[in-house]
């Protein structure tokens, strides 16, 4: 009897919690979310679809194969270089902290400028990284000039 009562309480509190948890989210005004956060959220989806398989969910990469995206100068530094890597891929032996990474990264030409900006913003602001966002306007001119 006591068990049934406890179970009942748990169910009630769970459903209650679920309801109360839902409401504030629905009420929360969307306008308060910063453009960078929106870009990060969109970028996460791009990352999961195109990048996570090799660079892994935690951005840690794969030893000997796929470079980590955590705290590396490549990720935190020059934005143009990052855009170029996403657009053209990378077919080089990369050395980071004395370790070598040699897998081929394909070019991701199918991504829109906005998607490139979003995914780069996501990696520059995730896995403990705290670099500035990449804006669409920083991706577009690079491509308009047809640089390779």
């Amino acid at each position: 009897m006591r068990k049934v009562f406890t179970l009942g309480l748990v169910i009630i509190s769970l459903t209650g919690f679920a309801q109360s948890a839902k409401k504030p989210v629905a009420k929360k005004p969307v306008t308060h979310v910063s453009a960078a956060t929106l870009s990060i959220n969109r970028g996460k989806l791009v990352y999961q679809k195109f990048c996570m398989s090799c660079h892994q969910a935690d951005g840690g990469g794969v030893p000997n194969l796929n470079p980590p995206l955590i705290g590396t100068t490549g990720v935190l530094g020059n934005k143009n270089r990052l855009v170029k890597i996403v657009r053209n891929g990378l077919q080089e032996h990369v050395e980071i902290d004395g370790e070598f990474y040699s897998n081929n990264m394909p070019p991701f030409k199918m991504l829109t400028d906005q998607q490139v900006a979003d995914v780069l913003t996501y990696i520059r602001r995730s896995f403990g990284n705290k670099a500035t966002p990449v804006l669409k306007s920083e991706v577009s001119p690079y491509y308009a000039k047809g640089k390779k």
């Binding site: 892994q56 969910a57 935690d58 840690g60 990469g61 794969v62 030893p63 980590p68």
Partner: peptide
């Protein structure tokens, strides 16, 4: 048990 982890989500672990 080589990995020292109950589950390995990513090889670096």
């Amino acid at each position: 048990g080589f990995s020292g982890q109950a589950e390995v989500m990513t090889p670096r672990q």
